[in-house]
Design a protein around this nucleic acid. Structure first.
Length: 924
RNA sequence: GCCCGGAUGGCGAAAUGGUAAACGCGGGCGACUUAAAAUCGCCUGGCCUCAGGGCCGUGCAGGUUCGAGUCCUGCUCCGGGCACCA
């Protein structure tokens, strides 16, 4: 039998399943290792080659840690609530549950075909009522602790999706999903008080083994800034004051006007009669302003004076109060003191409206632009001469002494908008008393009392529905229409209304890693025992697109659970790794058929070099006619004599190689099913790990996997010999069955060279896995497979060029020690092949728990080494020396080289540098 | 605009401040074969050279060092994130 993954792989997948090989149980005698993938949303499109990259990396770590004696928890599940299933339901009437179940089945089949060592007995699905129950249970805890509340907030309403989106889900004024327009409008919504945890979310980043850029992104997102709150009295309105937040209290002397956000509650009260019409018009206009318009107008300053004035508390000057939409209602106090000399936005505004600009910090030229850097305070009374930091401190002291302000801290982080007007999500386990309540905001209701439904009533499940469309009039949630579900009674029989909102998709993913620890528990979300043993996640791998949202939300919930004593660590994910994206490769040309329905042959084709990109799209350089880009899949292209890609029907047309995100329209999507069918799961796993560092994006190359496949065959052939039994391809049924027979390695440890190579490979692969450098680990195993049976002693001739091939053809036998080490080293990466070889070596048990090989330290040091000889830092030769050569001997050996003498031309070296075990550098 | 990454052969890449390009793809030559595929071996950064060999070479320009892909300064380009956050 030749290497045939289609026979080996299903065999071992069945074996692992039957023997429950990867079932994890709590075992206090063993150290634990919890390795987790970001669980996928099971989309209808199925797995793409990007998914298995992270899964393979975690699987290698899981299998490796098992072999190192750890008790490994490695689960998989489904983030199964989500918009696509609901949108599919709107289109087709298929219940999202059915779509979801079907997609999960497909995902599971695909993932299983890759041979990952998941403990499938722990599989979970966030839409499962047994899971929803505990998501709702956690919401109860949040509510009880005052961390969940309802508020009328301006939200991002997306009419096309029929739902409200979180700020994070809105990109450039359009929905992240689908790119539909989004408008801002006030609605009553569930909010989670994540801001209460801002400081802890910031501080606890310290101890985490996460990529620094991700930590920074989280810090920036939380956006802590220190400054001061200052109250400005309004002239003629005794007792009213405007409070502002500033990070530069040291510039207070330079505050020449104030600005309120248009939504600021004091606007109506302070506006003078003369300005009322203009102010109202401005408020009206900015409220209607779409996100897109806001984006487009960025930088242009608009605003209106209210007619009112305030007193600058440090110098008693009267300063005008304006409203302008460059001040955001949601940050700080929604009002600012404007210091045009030292803030770019204020400077631009002051220039636009002719307001005074005063320099109070030296260092720039405020006539030309705002100076935002530090410097010495000037024209600032008691601050004069102080450096910025000292000036800030002194001003805060002064404000606090006078009781007109105080040092304070603000955050960019806002409370988390936690409700969606969708069907396919977790219902809120609450009821509303009296009329109104939150019905997706449309009824805006009286502030009826909200109460949790009893724990015993969980899970609160979704009602069945046959029409999933959001209603046309305004923004009513689908659930609001289900009167039979919405209207209910409480324990005392009082009429109450359920909440028509559902939770966002984040809810389920905020705690799934905890449920994996104890997924079948009916009496608690997880047992304390399980959490104390398995928690926290030791290694978490997923895409960088979750850098802020999922990770921040999960950390927040985790901290709440920590405060409740339900988890014993402050942080959920100790080590985080972001895998890079697998990109698609395609080949581009252009043609002048700009219609979408390309008429074959009719169009004139252009190479990329003859095309120019303009604002109106690509045009031909020659005559300027409009062109359209076309893409060819790499399997469709031809190559010219030099190996360059050309169009298959037009060999004179060079193609441009393009590497980018996989998408259907570019014809560069690779389906894992196809790859596995052709090359097997082991080859796919290995290839994804081999194309480059895990964190880096890399293109999938259809040819590249061939090299990996060859390596696996080579590994197979180390243990098999082709038998010349019978004529090959003698009408043996179409397929040429080259019959290999198992060739057992010879007992023992082999030659010195073989022992060295084996030890080096063990040490190298182990180091590489430790650092998750899978690409270099694989290359070391390739070198091993190539050289282990090669008689190296014969073909090392100093210049190596002549007839090396002839001598090298003499082959050594494969020693059993080396053979076993090789199989075990390769096993985490190519488990099917290695299990098969392991069995053929005579082992009855799976190698999943076989001990990881240890390198013989004596074999890692050579007796003789090669030193590089440099003259003035440039390589001129090398010398073979004993490993313990003295510096003097190395030096004289180097100087004896003919090449060195020639270059020195009899000069005496000025200096000789000997680097132990490395080189000799002669400076002369 | 701000913040993060990144830039090394035809391509994916490797390289504790110490032999740049390991390993793989692609390409070339050869072996095996009636032939092809598969497999195996060798070659494969550029330029110069009669051999020996030499010169150049890690986005650009400098610097530190006996020695720089690696460290420092200033740029260029590409990718990603954030965006009037006071």
């Amino acid at each position: 039998m030749a290497y045939d993954p289609s026979l080996i792989e299903p065999k071992w997948q069945a074996y692992w399943e039957e023997n429950q090989t990867f079932r994890a149980e709590i075992d206090p005698a063993k150290p634990k290792y919890y390795v987790l993938d970001m669980f996928p949303y099971p989309s209808g499109a199925g797995l793409h080659v990007g998914h298995p990259e992270g899964y393979t990396a975690t699987d290698i770590m899981a299998r490796w840690m098992r072999m190192k004696g750890f008790n490994v928890l490695h689960p998989m599940g489904w983030d199964a609530f989500g918009l696509p299933a609901e949108q599919y339901a709107i289109k087709t009437g298929t219940h999202p549950r059915d779509t979801t179940q079907r997609n999960i089945a497909n995902f599971k089949r695909q993932i299983k075909s890759l041979g990952f060592s998941y403990d499938w007995s722990r599989e979970l699905d966030t839409t499962d009522p047994r899971y929803v129950k505990w998501t709702q249970w956690i919401f109860r805890k949040l509510f009880e602790r005052g961390l969940a509340y309802q508020a009328e907030v301006p939200v991002n309403w997306c009419p096309a999706l029929g739902t409200v989106l979180a700020n994070e889900e809105v990109i450039d004024g359009k929905s992240e999903v689908g790119g539909h327009p989004v408008v801002r409008m006030p609605m009553k919504q569930w909010m989670l008080r994540i801001t209460q945890y801002a400081d802890r979310l910031l501080e606890d980043l310290e101890g985490l083994d996460w990529p620094e850029p991700i930590k920074k992104q989280q810090r920036d997102w939380i956006g802590r800034s220190e400054g001061a709150h200052v109250r400005f009295a309004i002239i003629g309105q005794a007792g009213t004051a405007i409070e502002v937040f500033t990070t530069r209290p040291d510039t207070l002397f330079g505050a020449t006007y104030m600005v309120l956000a248009p939504e600021h509650p004091l606007v109506a009260a302070i506006t003078t009669a003369g300005q009322r019409a203009a102010v109202d018009a401005y408020i009206e206009r900015s409220a209607r302003k779409s996100e897109r318009l806001r984006q487009a107008e960025l930088g242009e300053k608009t605003g209106v004076a209210t007619g009112a004035f305030a007193t600058n508390p440090v110098n008693g000057r009267e300063i005008p109060i304006w409203i302008a939409d460059y001040v955001l209602a949601g940050y700080g106090t929604g009002a600012i003191m404007a210091v045009p000399g030292h803030d770019e936005r204020d400077w631009a505004f002051a220039k636009t409206f002719g307001l005074p600009i005063v320099e109070v910090v030296s260092g720039g030229d405020v006539a030309k632009s705002a100076w935002t850097g530090h410097g010495r305070a000037t024209a600032s009374g008691f601050l004069d001469g102080l450096e910025t930091d000292a000036a800030k401190r002194k001003m805060i002291e002064w404000l606090e002494a006078k009781q007109i302000g105080r040092g304070t801290v603000t955050y960019k982080l806002r409370d988390w908008l936690f409700s969606r007007q969708r069907y396919w999500g977790e219902p809120f386990p609450v009821v509303h008393y009296s009329q109104g309540g939150s019905q997706g905001g449309s009824q805006g209701g009286a502030d009826g009392r909200v109460e949790l439904i009893p724990e015993s009533a969980l899970p609160l499940l979704l009602p069945e529905l046959d029409d999933f469309k959001p209603k046309g009039e305004g923004f009513e949630a689908p659930l609001a229409r289900v009167k039979s579900w919405i209207e209910t009674t409480d324990a005392k029989g009082e009429r109450v209304l359920r909440d028509a909102n559902t939770m966002p998709q984040w809810a389920g993913s905020c705690w799934y890693f905890l449920r994996f620890m104890d997924p079948k528990n009916d009496t608690a979300p997880w047992s304390l025992e399980a959490e104390r043993y398995w928690g926290p996640v030791d290694l978490y791998v997923g895409g960088a697109e979750h850098a802020v949202l999922h990770l921040l939300y999960s950390r927040f919930w985790h901290k709440v659970l920590y405060d409740l004593g339900l988890v014993h660590t402050k942080e959920p994910f100790q080590k985080l790794v972001n895998q890079g994206m697998i990109l698609g490769e395609s080949f581009r040309f252009y043609d002048d058929d700009v219609s979408d329905s390309a008429r074959p042959g009719a169009a004139r084709r252009y190479a990329s070099a003859d095309v120019e990109e303009t604002d109106d799209g690509p045009v031909a350089k020659s005559d300027g006619r409009a062109l359209k880009a076309r893409w060819l899949h790499s399997s469709k292209i031809a190559t010219d004599a030099n190996g360059n890609p050309v169009h298959p029907e037009d060999p004179a047309l060079p193609l441009e190689r393009v590497v980018e995100k996989m998408s259907k329209s570019k014809g560069n999507v690779v389906n894992p099913d196809d790859v596995i069918r052709e090359h097997g799961a082991d080859a796919m796993r290995l290839y994804e790990m081999f194309i480059g560092p895990l964190e880096k994006a890399a293109p999938w190359s259809t040819e590249g996997i061939q090299g990996i496949y060859r390596f696996l065959q080579r590994a197979w052939r180390l243990f098999h010999s082709e038998e010349a039994g019978g004529d090959p391809s003698e009408e043996s049924g179409g397929r040429s069955e080259s019959r290999d027979t198992f060739r057992a390695p010879v007992p023992g440890t082999g030659t010195l060279e073989q022992r060295r190579l084996t030890a080096q490979t063990i040490a190298g692969v182990t180091d590489d896995l430790e650092a998750m450098r899978f690409n270099t680990a694989i290359s070391k195993l390739m070198v091993f497979a190539r050289d282990i049976t090669k008689d190296m002693t014969k073909d090392i001739t100093k210049d190596g060029t002549k007839d090396a091939g002839k001598d090298a053809s003499s082959e050594l036998a494969l020693p059993r020690d080396s053979a076993e080490a090789f199989i075990l080293l390769l096993a985490p990466m190519a488990p099917h092949l290695c299990e098969e070889l392991w069995q053929r070596l005579g082992h009855a048990e799976s190698l999943a728990y076989a001990p990881w090989p240890v390198a013989d330290p004596a074999m890692l040091v050579a007796d003789e080494i090669t030193l590089v000889v440099q003259v003035n830092g440039k390589k001129r030769g090398e010398i073979r020396v004993p490993v313990d050569v003295s510096d003097a001997e190395a030096e004289s050996g180097a100087l004896a080289l003919e090449a060195v003498q020639r270059i020195l031309e009899g000069r005496k070296p000025k200096k000789v540098i000997v680097v132990k075990g490395r080189l000799v550098n002669i400076v002369g």
